[in-house]
């Protein structure tokens, strides 16, 4: 590989990892340009959208595209790329090392284990139900149904790989479980249980990134993310609406 090609490949790899794991676009742009500048390129051009990353160096022939096919949420990786870019800027590592380490980072899975994520879901659903509704009677049903709902979403998303379908099924599950808890007499208010149990599935990352992207002037990616958040919210809403219409 020539130096130009290596610079472009490194920037693209960094950009691709960041977009895949839920970074906002302006940060991706910034990181890629920084890496290029620290590698000695005076003027680099990047074009970043949520489905693909492109980069060229002004005045040279090399231009490459990296497509982004899967998108997950793993902010640890975004922070890691940021960290690597900083160490490269401090000249602690050279370009081939950066390229290799980005490759390692891409392959490694650093997400929290499933049980810890389930604890997270429990911590989100119960406390938010109490905060929103100012009552504590339904805390336990909410925590358990919220955790199981997140488990359903996680497993389906892992094997089906269709996020919106997994959300719909998880919402259906939460609705039926809440109705069951109410019928059995375990919970006293079905609305509160559903509100709390749905909170771990809220599309927080696409929503926040949509706002930030639009404010930064990225009118391709911002609205696209807003649509993603809207479809997620609609999937959750449909699931609950079905349950409410049945009972």
């Amino acid at each position: 590989m020539t130096t130009d090609e290596l610079i472009i490949a490194t920037c693209l790899r960094a950009g691709k990892i960041m977009v895949e794991n839920g970074s906002e676009i302006s940060r991706v742009d910034d990181t890629m340009i920084r890496i290029a500048q620290n590698a000695g390129v005076i003027q680099a051009n990047t074009y970043v959208t949520i489905t693909g990353v492109m980069m060229s160096i002004s005045g040279r022939n090399a231009t490459q595209i990296a497509s982004v096919n899967k998108r997950t949420i793993d902010l640890e990786k975004v922070a890691q790329v940021n960290q690597l870019s900083r160490t490269f800027a401090d000249q602690q590592i050279d370009l081939p090392t950066l390229y290799a380490q980005l490759g390692e980072l891409d392959g490694a899975s650093r997400s929290f284990p499933l049980w810890l994520q389930l604890v997270g879901a429990a911590l989100v659903s119960g406390p938010l139900m109490i905060m929103f509704r100012h009552e504590t009677i339904n805390t336990w049903p909410t925590i358990i149904i919220g955790t199981l709902g997140y488990l359903v979403f996680y497993l389906l998303n892992r094997y089906l790989k269709i996020k919106f379908l997994s959300e719909l099924v998880a919402a259906l599950f939460i609705g039926f479980a809440a109705e069951w808890a109410y019928q059995v007499g375990w919970g006293t208010n079905i609305n509160d249980i559903i509100i709390g149990a749905l909170m771990p599935l809220v599309p927080g990352v696409p929503l926040t990134n949509a706002v930030r992207d639009i404010l930064a002037g990225n009118f391709v990616s911002g609205p696209a993310r807003a649509v993603e958040a809207l479809i997620s919210a609609a999937a959750l809403g449909f699931g609950i609406a079905v349950v409410i219409s049945i009972f």
């Binding site: 839920g22 949420i73 793993d74 902010l75 640890e76 922070a79 890691q80 650093r110 997400s111 929290f112 810890l116 994520q117 604890v119 997270g120 879901a121 429990a122 911590l123 989100v124 659903s125 406390p127 938010l128 905060m131 997140y150 909170m199 771990p200 927080g204 990352v205």
Partner: peptide, 12 residues
């Protein structure tokens, strides 16, 4: 709640 959501979206 913030801690829990942090665990779900895997922040450092």
């Amino acid at each position: 709640a913030v801690l829990g959501f942090g665990l779900i979206i895997n922040i450092p």
